[in-house]
Design a binder for these strands. Sequence first.
DNA 1: TCATATTCGTGAGGTAGGTCAACAGTGGGT
DNA 2: ACCCACTGTTGACCTACCTCACGAATATGA
Lengths: 187, 187
Amino acid sequence: MYQILREHIEKIVPLSDEEFAFVARHFTARKYKKHQFLVQPGDAVKHYYFVVSGLLKLVYTDEDARQHIVSFAMKDWWEGDFYAFYTQTEATLSVECLEDTEVLCFSLQDYRDLCNGLQKMERFFLEKVNFGFLAAQRRIISMLTSSAKERYEQLIKQYPSLVQRVPKSQLAAYLGVSRETLSRLYQ
Amino acid sequence: MYQILREHIEKIVPLSDEEFAFVARHFTARKYKKHQFLVQPGDAVKHYYFVVSGLLKLVYTDEDARQHIVSFAMKDWWEGDFYAFYTQTEATLSVECLEDTEVLCFSLQDYRDLCNGLQKMERFFLEKVNFGFLAAQRRIISMLTSSAKERYEQLIKQYPSLVQRVPKSQLAAYLGVSRETLSRLYQ
DNA sequence: TCATATTCGTGAGGTAGGTCAACAGTGGGT
DNA sequence: ACCCACTGTTGACCTACCTCACGAATATGA
């Protein structure tokens, strides 16, 4: 379990055994069942999550109770209501399991201790969020320029394994179309 | 000019005079005229930009030559084709002046030297990109949940000064609607 | 100062995608 | 082994927004 985290971090910054031991001390392992919520709107957000196995979704639920999927997270990805976590405010998003899921999570204090105690970890987080920002920017461009069908094809191309594992209704909620429209794209 | 940069950085990390002198050495001042391009698709992207005065837009131009605005940048904001800058690949986006603009820019080597030479700057960049990521996530949610009119109202609320300075056609290209539709929203 | 863009508004008609409803197949849970 | 929720599909109709076209007002620059 921790080995996956170590490999993930070492893709960006190599660590000695002692350094990784320091890192690992700041993470807590948790297991959740399919359909379980890790975060719900209004919660105090104590943790941010690294997915070891399984599948999560980050969801915004609007006034009409419609669900819009901000992001998915599979093995090796990070997930959480980052705004609420980082600013220690109430959650506006929810995090929910689409499959049984194992995570390693940390608190904001852990995050700060990691950044302050080991400069490599600050470098690691900077690198991660840089690419997270770019991924978000690409998605914005995709939403500005492409039709539902084109966005669906981009998703299939970019994350083929996700499309296998997730119900189409969930993909529709991620793409920003109704499930009926998604169903009709390839009739 | 450099004072604006200093104040901007010191909102996040306080700096001594020597530290700021070190930082300032890595920035170059430039001036551009309205309609001038700082970056065009295909360019080698040598710089990332901090806006001192004026107004920039970051644009994706699709195959039909339609312009889609990824972001605006006014005083105190950062702008550039970050992906091409960071990975040293050819620009896919363009950066163009909507007004006469003064910037401070740095190269990727400068960025690395800043991060390595002064841990506070790495902290600063981490903080900045964290909030940049969150802003992008908010925009994605807005595009998933809101109509053209609602998105326009959110824009007016969030950046009233921008709406004053920018032609409606440009706001439309940012919101992802045609200028005709935007024009009809409040008829 | 004049010529030319640029900007904004508006009409008419088209289309991608939404909504509501019904139905069939599937799979998990007890 | 059965039930029920979940999932995907399709039809009929609706609407938000797009496209093309035209015209007027304003800004820009030689």
